[in-house]
Simulated assay, not measured.
Amino acid sequence: MLFAVALLTLVSFLSLGSAYSDLSDDTLKNLPGPGDDFDIHKGSILAPILRTRVSGTEGNRAVRQHFIDFFKSQLPEWRIELHNSTSTTPVSGGKEVPFVNLIATRDPPGSFEGDVSRLALVAHYDSKYTPKGFIGAIDSAAPCAMIMHVARSIDAALTKKWAASDGDDFDVEHKGVQILLLDGEEAFRSWTDTDSLYGARALAGDWESTFHTAASIYRTPLDSIELFLLLDLLGSAQPRVPSYFKTTHWAYKHMANAEDRLRKLGVMKSSPNHAANMVKRENKKPRAEPYFLPEGSKADNAFMGGFVQDDHVPFMARGVEILHIIPTPFPRVWHEITDDGEHLDMDTVEDWTKLVMAFAAEWMELEGFFDFTAGKRGETTKSEL
């Protein structure tokens, strides 16, 4: 018992970002872009998600199978699980609609389920019931694609890091990554506590009552989530994402710092000061940077409460720490039929992908473990900037 208490005390010291380590400038400049895999018509990652995918429909099942095939073929070391639930909806005529969450987990080799803390990368993959034919590119096909590319890009570095561990670093041996692609976020008629977040509510409730073995460090799968990083409504130009929660402002500041460094290094494609954009205009003077995360210097006493309803709500209600990456105000295409692939700003999509990748790599302390000689996937190289 005394050992368990001491171990939990150690874990508390290791949490709250104490192990967070910045990437070098060279690593930041070489983080791989998605290249053609984000092409909205034929890209192997994004294009299959850009379709109607209302929960319980064939389109929803097809997109879920796309996720499964991606992990099985490209990331075989990740453990794939499907979490199933059913519920009636205001438009189902009393019939139960299936909701299926996909969970992909990569833990250090040899670790035990209840002894690993995880960074959770989260987005919802269902699309809205109305208007008819709604695609939901920002909401949230693009965020799903971002997470998939991030997972693929850090996978080999995770393997290399864990292989290099001598077994004496507690943090290395007990820290993993989990991806939650959630179903049923959208309301079928109008947003209420019961007509929304179907998959998230079911998963959070089940995980609250799923217990690890008595000797485990973490009591439940919810306790194992060190940070729930939720991406939503990303892909429109010039987003502005505030820091919503005081308890995770430290994590927001880390991501904001990564953005600032990426911009100063000239690798943010949506920046007016990116080399490609400078060439296009007559006035070559630098312009003000439109930061995605403008509140990195926000004071702790500036939090006034309030937040955006989203998939994090049932997890936050159970004590999970949340970093919510959703713009305020919402993009103009939100819940409009124009939220499709053609209305994505692809430079912004790629920039968000690189920023989330940098954050995940810094969280997992992957500096020195990337192999950039293995080739990239068609992104702009430094020599072309």
Rank of each mutant, 00 (worst) to 15 (best):
M268F: 14
P34S: 08
K95A: 15
L234H: 01
R118P: 04
I138V: 08
T353F: 05
T192V: 13
E342R: 13
E282M: 14
A145P: 02
P286L: 01
E350Y: 10
Y129S: 14
G110R: 12
R201S: 14
F292L: 09
P143A: 01
F315C: 07
I154N: 01
T380K: 15
Q309G: 08
D171K: 07
F3A: 09
G235E: 02
E77Y: 11
E295R: 10
T353E: 02
H124D: 08
D168C: 11
K354H: 00
D169V: 03
A141E: 03
D340Y: 05
L102A: 03
F315A: 07
S236F: 06
K42A: 14
T9N: 15
T373M: 13
S196C: 11
G94N: 12
T86H: 07
D193E: 11
P272G: 06
T130V: 08
S297G: 13
G375T: 13
A374D: 09
A258S: 09
A251R: 04
H324T: 09
Y129L: 08
G35H: 05
R332C: 09
A302Y: 14
W162D: 03
I154L: 01
L227G: 09
L233M: 11
T27R: 01
D26V: 15
F3G: 05
A104F: 00
M346L: 10
P290A: 03
L230M: 01
P314S: 00
M148N: 02
T194R: 12
H254S: 10
T89H: 12
I325S: 11
L158N: 10
V122C: 02
F13Q: 08
E81Q: 13
T105E: 02
A142R: 04
L182N: 05
P48E: 06
K29P: 09
S224W: 06
L158S: 06
T86W: 15
M268A: 12
A156T: 14
G136F: 01
G33M: 03
F70Y: 04
